[in-house]
Amino acid sequence: MTPTALAPAGFAMLIVLMLYRRFRRLFGRQPVQPARMKVRVAFLFAVGAMLMLRGSHESSMALALTLGFAGGAALALLGLHLTTFETTPEGRSYTPHGGIGLVLSAVLLGRLVYRGFVLAPVFDGAHAGNAAAFALFQRSPLTFALFGVVIAYYVAYYVGILLHESRASSAASRAGAAPLPRQPDA
């Protein structure tokens, strides 16, 4: 294989790995890992801020992203309500409601694949004319709104889990109980 053929194959394998890890975290008991969650919140917050800066130049994009953020935050509140929290000898854990995360991930992935197929002929024509093909990919308010939903959902959901963890730790310390060991952040 030539290096130009290896790059897309490597990128595709990386995307598959990321999707596998994302879907694996949607089901079953998950350990509460505050350090990782804080990093994810910071990263997603930064991505959301960059998208907001990008979308602020067009009112339809800014409105779509704002509505997406609001929808994602509302879904996160629902997801937190449906999440089961447990304290075991191994530490604190939570079991997310897999349906919400699965639907969000599937809708976003479906939208990106759809946009890829719709814009593939445009990419070829833009590439031949040295135009910025990916600029066309970013001009969809629906795609921006879906990015906003996913980003706001995970930021609000992880913040909610961290707040729940903080309250549970302080309640255990007030009750005089020895805190349970936490899972190491690996």
Rank of each mutant, 00 (worst) to 15 (best):
N130T: 01
M18S: 14
A106M: 12
A9W: 08
S59L: 15
F45V: 04
F69W: 10
Q33I: 12
V39Q: 09
G55W: 04
V32T: 00
G98E: 06
V39L: 11
A186C: 02
Q183E: 12
T66L: 13
R139N: 10
P34S: 04
A73N: 04
G176I: 08
M52I: 01
G79L: 11
S166Q: 14
V32I: 13
L142K: 02
Q138K: 13
S105V: 11
E90M: 11
A177W: 07
V149A: 03
E58C: 01
F69Y: 14
Q183Y: 15
S105R: 09
A177T: 07
G55N: 13
A64K: 00
A49M: 10
Y158C: 06
F144K: 06
M18K: 09
S60D: 14
S93Y: 12
L112E: 10
P121S: 10
F144V: 14
F23K: 03
A132R: 13
V150A: 15
L77G: 08
R115H: 11
L146S: 05
A35T: 11
L162S: 01
H164L: 14
G71N: 05
A76L: 05
R54G: 06
P89M: 07
F85N: 03
A178I: 11
P34K: 03
L6A: 14
G101Y: 13
V103E: 01
G68P: 10
F69K: 10
A120W: 13
F137S: 14
G101S: 09
Q183P: 01
A126G: 07
F144G: 11
P34V: 05
Y153W: 12
R21P: 00
L112Y: 07
R182P: 02
P8Q: 07
E58Q: 13
A70I: 03
G125W: 00
A46Y: 12
A178V: 12
E90D: 14
R36I: 05
E165D: 13
Y158R: 11
F11P: 00
A5M: 04
A128S: 10
V113N: 00
Q138A: 15
G129N: 14
Q183G: 05
N130P: 00
V113Q: 02
L6E: 06
Y157N: 00
S169C: 08
V32R: 00
Q33F: 04
R25F: 03
F137G: 03
A74Y: 09
V113W: 03
A46D: 02
F147C: 12
R24L: 02
T143H: 08
P89W: 08
D124F: 14
T84E: 15
A133D: 01
P181N: 01
E90T: 13
